[in-house]
């Protein structure tokens, strides 16, 4: 879908962290792990759309949490209530596509703004009364995505500087709680995925599904820019993060 949405609110929620709520005018039926591709500027600076994980979606509303990094996100942070934003989406696959339906313990791990994507899954699981362990990692308290909402869902926290929750990484918290046969859903930076994999490998039969981020051109699978090297049999092939992902089995990914 391509939708001309209206900004309901665009609020600063932490250091360089913003939360944007859009009114899509109709139900967009997003699933946890999916993203929207936002056209931020009427001018050609920035030229391309910017992809954002969906933080929450209900009825005709869709929310994202973003960090101001470059000119695109800076421009986005200056947008006001009532402004119109064109987005494409929901795009990409969902964590739910990888839910086996088994009784495996579920662990959710969000790192940095990647926590936004995992929150949507946590909220979904809670509504279905499915139990899960929830960990969020960030540099510091002020960069923790939506602290209050996460707390409500029983999230454990880890910060690099110890300003909230455990001092250290989300993967350190994982060490203490991970059980055999678990299934982990995660979104965040690649070094965090590596650390999670290292912990997962100390247990038996743990599956890790991670939502990746790569530089996208189109967001709909046409340009083949945002690829990841994926193992297929004895060889590897480049698969598109926007269309074949963003969520992949971490065992299949060369990174």
């Amino acid at each position: 879908m391509r939708i001309k949405s209206k900004i309901v609110s665009n609020t600063k929620i932490g250091s360089d962290l913003w939360r944007l709520k859009l009114d899509a005018g109709k139900s967009i039926k997003a699933r946890p792990g999916q993203f929207i591709n936002l056209l931020i500027s009427e001018s050609y600076q920035p030229l391309l759309r910017r992809p954002f994980s969906i933080y929450d979606a209900y009825g005709k509303y869709v929310e994202i949490v973003y960090k101001v990094i470059g000119c695109g996100t800076r421009l986005l942070s200056e947008k006001k209530k009532g402004d119109v934003l064109d987005f494409m989406g929901p795009l990409g696959n969902s964590y739910l596509d990888h839910m086996t339906g088994s009784k495996s313990p579920i662990v959710l791990i969000g790192g940095g703004t990647g926590a936004a994507s995992v929150f949507f899954l946590a909220k979904y699981l809670k509504s279905k009364k499915i139990k899960f362990t929830f960990i969020q990692g960030a540099k510091c308290r002020d960069q923790m995505v939506a602290r209050a909402e996460f707390k409500k869902l029983g999230c454990a926290f880890a910060t690099d500087d110890g300003s909230m929750g455990n001092k250290g990484f989300a993967s350190d918290v994982l060490k203490d709680v991970l059980k055999d046969d678990s299934i982990i859903f995660t979104c965040g930076p690649k070094p965090m995925f590596k650390a999670i994999k290292a912990v997962a490998d100390t247990k038996n039969f743990v599956k890790v599904f991670a939502s990746f981020e790569e530089y996208m051109g189109c967001g709909i699978g046409a340009c083949v820019s945002c690829v990841l090297e994926i193992k297929t049999g004895d060889t590897t092939e480049y698969k598109r993060v926007c269309k074949d992902g963003t969520i992949f089995d971490l065992n299949d990914v060369e990174f």
């Binding site: 790569e214 530089y215 820019s225 690829v227």
Partner: peptide, 11 residues
Amino acid sequence: TPRLVETTAGI
């Protein structure tokens, strides 16, 4: 990768 990057009014 990376295969694509944005530049001023271009990619």
